[in-house]
Design a protein around this nucleic acid. Structure first.
Length: 187
DNA sequence: GGCCAGGACACCA
DNA sequence: TGGTGTCATGGC
């Protein structure tokens, strides 16, 4: 076992399983992935609670909503104007994916305006159970702190983790969640 | 009261 | 490619 893998075991022993991604449905994961961009998860929870309370947390419901109504519901998550528009675009893509009954590929998610690499990989991993390792700001700090890797590009980090670990979806999910927990507790 | 969060994009040189 | 401004709310 290499250093990257053994660090995972240490984190798991210290913090325990993180139970990510907290959501009641596949679509809720996707909504959360977009809303959490540069946003505290507590605020995302408020936005999702609003959608649930209004009984609008479903693809067809979101697409039927006036953009102004959607903006008000997701307002607590911040950047609500651009997120409302982007959530609709992403939802259209999601409906298309479900309709054709096949898995999404990374490229088509990245084509959606407002979906960058981290959001795309979060969707692939946590919503569709595909083995993409999610990189975020905490992950870069984690790598620097433990001297695992000092790169710049997102995909350099992703490929590093994917080549250092067994190709396991549960492992990828848990490791990313543990790194976030590590980051929140400060170095 | 200020700092910043589970980013992405446009625009510039 | 690298640097900077913008988007915005609510928790701590």
């Amino acid at each position: 076992m290499n250093k990257t893998h053994s660090l995972y075991r240490s984190l798991l022993r210290e913090f325990g399983p993180q139970e990510w991604w907290p959501a009641d449905s596949q679509y809720e994961v996707i909504v959360g992935a977009l809303l959490t961009q540069n946003t505290n998860w507590k605020n995302v929870e408020k936005a999702i609670a609003n959608l649930k309370k209004a009984k609008k947390l479903a693809p067809t419901k979101i697409l039927k909503l006036e953009t102004s109504e959607l903006e008000q519901l997701i307002k607590p998550s911040g950047f609500y104007r651009q997120k409302a528009e982007r959530l609709k675009t992403l939802t259209k893509k999601y409906v298309e994916i479900k309709k054709r009954n096949s898995l999404p590929n990374r490229g088509e998610l990245l084509e959606v305006k407002g979906v960058g690499k981290e959001t795309a990989d979060s969707i692939l991993l946590y919503a569709f159970d595909l083995p993409y390792f999610v990189i975020d700001a905490y992950t870069r700090r984690f790598c620097a702190h433990h001297k695992l890797l000092n790169a710049k590009e997102y995909d350099d980090y992703r490929e590093f983790f994917e080549s250092s670990l067994p190709r396991s979806v549960p492992l990828y999910k848990e490791y990313h969640a543990l790194i976030v927990e590590w980051g929140k507790r400060a170095i």
